[in-house]
Design a binder for these strands. Structure first.
Length: 601
DNA sequence: GCCGTTTTCGGCCCGACTGTTTTCAGTCG
């Protein structure tokens, strides 16, 4: 059964599994195994299998631990996970360890993984560095590069040394991953600039920015032009460019001053669609698409779709053409992750995901009464100018002291002010309603920070965790479930508490939370603040599968924050959410009916 | 190591650029 030095694992141990591992952790271990095997010169297809399994696990809405509870069959039938990797998942769940990884690490230091992050160093070079010079950490590598030892090795020269030193420096300065809200504006600036270059007929951002992934490693730009040289020249001399990494006739890469890499591809107008599809990715989507093409006797690359016999060009001018030639509906970029979109596209005419125009209001915002910057009226007019029908004012409760949280008296006073403003709006003939809400703190014991009497008088109660983030998963899950079971909250805000790149999500079992939310009719928020995006795309998809409504909100603290809804909308689309899955696509009357019914009124 | 409309063996996506070579391996997306 077990090969290549992995410790034989007794599947009967599954019975006593401790369930200590989340999907992300298991995926990370398989990524590490793939990288290390590759450095070790293993069979590339074996390497790919581990990496592919990690991709699959990373994007799964169900947790492996839950599936494993169903016994040995619980993990069967997951595409990309066969007998060997399934066995290792059970082992990880039961023991928290992976014998194979431990075996590999006996022969190879863990620092190799850092070395692989250096630009220009792949598995082959990392392996050569380790076996020839014993280089095992970033520090070793920096030392060897600056002292000129690297150029003694075959395949390494002066330029490589300099490049390695530059890359180590920028790796240390940056985590290497940028929030979408940082990458996207740069992508838009560059595409607008290049779009104006004479002869450019189309130019747009591709890659993870176009797929609206929450973080981007770099910016990919595609342009159609018959004079690539001019476009490349303009690109590499843009004032935001710090370094030119590569410059060719079809492809160039630059490092921007802000520290993010941008790549430009220039193609002929005739194959713009094929190239756009190709460079939008994801990689997993492309691989699956090519595989599908092959089975149909076609070949697909960035230049178009070709018949294998005779290499006849069939399509490529637009993405629609390419998908059509494959017998598929056009797939929205947000779905291109090889998570079933290709199968659905075979039987669909069009995908109907959530659109920003479907939204009727916002259900989470703050005023200057707590930690916001504007008045009730200011926030209401900002929401109105977006075409909304309603806005819930949800200031913090007293437990959130740093945010000047409101006590019972202040909430009651605020409700009276909202009534007065609503009356004024009605008098002026505005078809707009401010909902009386609160973001009530869920205390460490799961009780709520406003008395029931206050919560019952609100139009909308949003519950949220703001403290004691370090509880273990059992305590935190019980805390949140208790708040849901109280029957006093209508929405659970930012359900995992994460801040992208700054704070890990707290330990919480989202499946248990969602089951409770479903039972008690509580919606889970997708907080659109670009640092949060919480629920994330995978959790949105889980909510859809479990039939839990999602409240799409901005958590605006200023009149300008309502713009952030765009990040939430596209995250929801990445989770396959449609209009009917979102609470605030309901018109006001339906929303109020829904909340009353939930409260049993 | 995984998978199957080529189904239990044999294949697994593909092209551009760089730095090192002197025709190409390695890296990257």
């Amino acid at each position: 059964m077990s090969t290549n030095g992995s410790i034989p694992f007794d599947i009967s141990l599954v019975v006593v599994q401790k369930f200590i591992m989340e999907n992300a952790e298991i995926a990370r271990i398989f990524y590490e195994i793939a990288d290390l095997l590759e450095v070790n010169g293993e069979n590339p297809f074996r390497v790919r299998s581990y990496r592919n399994a990690a991709d699959v696990i990373d994007g799964m809405p169900e947790s492996l631990k839950t599936l494993a509870q169903k016994g040995e069959d619980g993990l069967k039938g997951i595409h990309g996970i066969g007998d060997s990797i399934r066995e290792k998942i059970f082992e990880l769940l039961a023991t928290g360890k992976c014998g194979l990884l431990e075996e590999i690490l006996k022969q190879m230091p863990v620092g190799i993984l850092d070395i692989l992050r250096v630009s220009g160093i792949g598995p082959k070079k990392a392996g050569a560095l380790y076996s020839a010079l014993g280089i095992a950490t970033l520090e070793d590598l920096a030392e060897a590069a600056s002292s000129g030892k690297l150029r003694l090795l075959d395949g390494f020269g002066e330029k490589t040394e300099a490049k390695i030193l530059r890359s180590i420096k920028s790796l240390k300065a940056m985590s290497g991953v940028f929030k979408l809200s940082l990458a996207r504006p740069y992508a838009l600036t560059l595409t607008e600039y290049l779009g104006k270059v004479h002869g450019v007929t189309a130019c747009e951002a591709a890659g993870s920015v176009r797929r609206w992934k929450e973080t981007a490693g770099d910016i990919d730009i595609l342009a159609a032009c018959d004079n690539a040289e001019v476009v490349m020249e303009r690109f590499t001399t843009h004032p935001d460019v710090k370094d030119v990494i590569a410059k060719g006739a079809a492809k160039s890469s630059v490092m921007l001053r802000v520290g993010i890499q941008a790549d430009l591809r220039v193609v002929d107008e005739k194959c713009y669609g094929a190239a756009l599809l190709y460079f939008t990715g994801s990689k997993a989507h492309n691989v699956a698409l090519r595989d599908m093409a092959k089975r149909k006797g076609l070949k697909i690359n960035e230049y178009g779709v070709f018949s294998v016999k005779g290499e006849k060009w069939l399509a490529g001018k637009t993405e629609e053409d390419v998908y059509k030639a494959m017998g598929l509906a056009w797939i929205p970029p947000e779905l291109r992750e090889n998570k079933g979109e290709l199968i659905v596209a075979q039987s669909k005419k069009t995908f109907r995901l959530l659109e920003i125009a479907d939204l009727r209001g916002d259900l989470h915002c703050h005023t200057s009464e707590s930690d916001g910057s504007y008045s009730i009226e200011d926030m209401a007019f900002a929401a109105m100018s977006r075409g909304y029908e309603y806005l819930a004012i949800t200031d913090h409760s007293k437990a959130v002291g740093v945010a000047h949280g409101l006590n019972e008296e202040r909430v009651v006073a605020q409700m009276e002010r909202i009534d007065a403003v609503n009356a004024k709006l009605k008098k002026r003939g505005k078809n707009f309603t401010i909902l009386k809400g609160a973001e009530v703190d869920i205390r460490a014991d799961g009780t709520l920070d406003h008395p029931d009497g206050v919560l019952d008088r609100l139009d909308l109660a949003v519950g949220a965790v703001h403290s004691s983030f370090n509880m273990d998963i059992k305590e935190m899950t019980a805390r949140i479930v208790r708040a849901i079971k109280s029957g006093k909250i209508d929405v659970l805000a930012h359900p995992t508490g994460r801040l992208i790149g700054a704070r890990e999500p707290y330990a919480v079992d989202m499946e248990i939370v969602m089951d409770a939310a479903k039972k008690h009719g509580v919606a889970l928020e997708l907080n659109s603040y670009p640092d949060r995006l919480d629920l994330n795309d995978v959790h949105c998809n889980l909510a859809k599968h479990k039939g839990v409504m999602v409240a799409l909100s901005t958590d605006s603290h200023s009149v300008y924050n309502f713009e952030n809804i765009i990040y939430g909308v596209h995250t929801a689309r990445r989770g396959w959410l449609e209009k009917a899955d979102i609470l605030n696509t309901m018109p006001l009357s339906a929303l109020l009916r829904h909340i009353r019914a939930r409260r049993g009124l």
